[in-house]
Every structure is written in structure tokens, then in C-alpha cells.
Amino acid sequence: MGERIRGVPVHDHGHGDAGAGRRAGIVIASTRAATGVYTDQTGPVIADWLAEHGFEVVPPAVVPDGPSVGAAIRALLAMEPAVIITSGGTGLSPDDTTPEQTLPLLDREVPGVVEAIRRVGSHKAPTSVLTRGHAGTAGKTFIVNLPGSPAGVMDGLAVLDPILGHICGQLEGGHGH
């Protein structure tokens, strides 16, 4: 195992520069953070992790739960990033609608990614199985919904660590398997 970025292990699987020359966007779905009730803790973790992996990171968009999430994802898609990572809005509260905002934007789903994130989290917190979310592609952009908790984000990034470079390469037309 290599170094750690904000507590998230960074493994060197030949993908340490997964983002070299690639842009990434972040959407934080949190009404409380968007209105200043508290400071978002997950955006900086995701941004640091992406930067460590060589991505040019667009500053995180912190938006209220609901339609603002879909609007923020669409705005990022117009910039044609390689990756968009969302955090928050994946639970069962009435305003947790990040999955519903994300799904219509996807061309293809990649359910194994979210399944792996839930599986990793369930070993630490049984409630992680309640996390809803999607992973998939919109054109050449990979989108994944991560939970809103810092621990859930770290679990998600640990799952993405060895595969994100491969995903980006395939979306760019690489045929490596």
C-alpha cells in the first residue's frame, strides 16, 4: 500500500496518474452545506484524491438536495470531464434524490461499482447497505454517486482507486481488458 490522502489509501496499481490530462468534477448534494449550516467535509477529500491521481479538478459544486443536483451534473457534463463524483443525497430521506437526478443522465450503468462500494462499507457500518446510488457513463464521462459521509466517501474512493484509470481509458476508446 502506498501513501494516504486525507485518510484514503492510495495504492500504486499503475494508475497513479489515472487523471493525467483529464478533468474531473465534484457535486456535493447537501442542503445544509449549501445554506451554510455546516461546512462540507467530503468535497475536499474527493478533490485532494482526484488531484493526487493527476486530474485537473473543477472546484466542487455544493448544491441543495433535489433538482439542483441534476443541474450541477449537467453543467459539469457540458465541460466534458472524464469523471464526475457526487457525494450525498443517496440515503432514504425524502430529499435524498441524487440517484434519481443522476440516472436520466446516464447512457449506460455500471452497477458493479456501487455494489462494491456498499460491500466494502458493510464490513464497517451495516447501514451502508441502505446507500442508494448509480455509477455509469454519460458519453465519455464516468459518473458515480458516493454517500455523504466522510467514511462512505473513503470507502468509495478505495473502490475507485485501482479501476478509475482503466475506466477512463476504455471510455476514451482504449481496448485494454
Score class of each variant (00 low, 15 high):
residue 28 I to T: 07
residue 79 M to Y: 05
residue 101 Q to R: 10
residue 16 G to L: 14
residue 169 G to Y: 10
residue 131 T to L: 11
residue 59 P to E: 13
residue 137 T to F: 08
residue 105 L to P: 02
residue 43 G to K: 02
residue 24 A to C: 07
residue 37 V to Q: 14
residue 73 I to N: 01
residue 30 S to W: 05
residue 80 E to Y: 10
residue 119 R to Y: 14
residue 159 V to I: 14
residue 90 T to N: 06
residue 55 F to C: 03
residue 120 V to E: 14
residue 14 G to M: 11
residue 11 H to Y: 09
residue 41 Q to K: 15
residue 125 A to R: 15
residue 113 V to W: 06
residue 8 V to H: 00
residue 83 V to I: 14
residue 108 R to K: 14
residue 69 V to Q: 04
residue 32 R to D: 08
residue 92 L to A: 11
residue 35 T to R: 15
residue 111 P to K: 10
residue 108 R to D: 13
residue 131 T to G: 07
residue 25 G to A: 02
residue 176 G to L: 11
residue 135 A to R: 05
residue 58 V to K: 13
residue 74 R to K: 15
residue 22 R to L: 10
residue 144 V to T: 13
residue 126 P to W: 14
residue 153 V to Y: 01
residue 116 A to T: 14
residue 126 P to L: 11
residue 177 H to W: 10
residue 87 S to N: 11
residue 145 N to M: 01
residue 75 A to I: 00
residue 168 C to Y: 05
residue 15 H to C: 04
residue 110 V to M: 12
residue 82 A to Q: 05
residue 92 L to T: 12
residue 102 T to C: 03
residue 90 T to E: 03
residue 121 G to H: 07
residue 111 P to S: 10
residue 162 P to T: 09
residue 78 A to H: 12
residue 40 D to W: 10
residue 119 R to E: 07
residue 142 F to S: 00
residue 1 M to R: 15
residue 23 R to H: 08
residue 52 E to M: 06
residue 24 A to G: 10
residue 87 S to F: 11
residue 55 F to E: 02
residue 87 S to Q: 06
residue 75 A to Q: 13
residue 52 E to V: 06
residue 47 A to N: 02
residue 169 G to Q: 09
residue 144 V to I: 15
residue 153 V to I: 02
residue 99 P to C: 06
residue 5 I to R: 10
residue 168 C to N: 03
